[in-house]
Design a binder for these strands. Sequence first.
DNA 1: ATTCTTGCAAAAGATTTGCAAACAA
DNA 2: TTGTTTGCAAATCTTTTGCAAGAAT
Lengths: 142, 142
Amino acid sequence: MGEETDATLRERLVTAGGHLTRQRCAVYSYLRRARQHPTAEEVYLGVKKEMPRISLATVYKNLEALVNCGLATKVTAGDGAARYDIRTDHHYHSRCLKCGWMVDLDPEAEGALPELVRVPSNFEVSQYRIEVLGFCSDCREG
Amino acid sequence: MGEETDATLRERLVTAGGHLTRQRCAVYSYLRRARQHPTAEEVYLGVKKEMPRISLATVYKNLEALVNCGLATKVTAGDGAARYDIRTDHHYHSRCLKCGWMVDLDPEAEGALPELVRVPSNFEVSQYRIEVLGFCSDCREG
DNA sequence: ATTCTTGCAAAAGATTTGCAAACAA
DNA sequence: TTGTTTGCAAATCTTTTGCAAGAAT
């Protein structure tokens, strides 16, 4: 993993009162390289290849630490296991109903929510999520 | 429970190859009367009051049966247990980050999704979900 | 009669926790 | 040194499943 990446990770961790460990670097590195949004189990299996003694509990704890210091997002797809996303900026997701493939979607326009949904005035909105469900290019053919 | 309600339930169940049982009526009735979107556990505890020998497994099976015959929706909030919603039409949800309170939101305008999100053209959209997160009127004060 | 459903207990899957040893600051 | 993290096993929580007995069609 790159040294500036380690530095960023260390800075965020230290600010949150944490330590920079080999396991934490490995989890963060795996997440950065992941093509998809992996589950904790997938991160575990991936990191295990280079660090055979790491435990699944450690992976869970480290993923939580990354989320807590703002370096990752937990995406709960609803079905099965939670997934982790290296992106932390405001964006949405599409998910294939057949294979579960999850893709990031970029906001097209900001502040358009009120036109789409009527939110009660006594509810204080802090964020919103959009999930688009359907079939990816591979699955719509098969 | 009202007789027309039973008749609707029976019709849907029979169409799907199922039976109308006391337990199923009770679960459906509870869901209709629920002020919030209850978890399976909450439905179980509620129905148990009038039907002490019902089992949690039966409640799970019956909630699934209701979803399958189009009389309820399963709402997976991400955290903890799934919740069940008697509404089956297209609508959204808001959820309080403090107390978990979930409220139905009505669509303000249809077909506005493309203005909000850029979905890849090779993805076949079948539905989308919007979840508004924040704080309900009770929790923004406390 | 036949098929579906119930209730129970056990199983399964995902995530969390307690704790002593190891590590980072 | 002091406080945090690791790895392991056990525990927890939610949901599912197998099966014999019971209920609905």
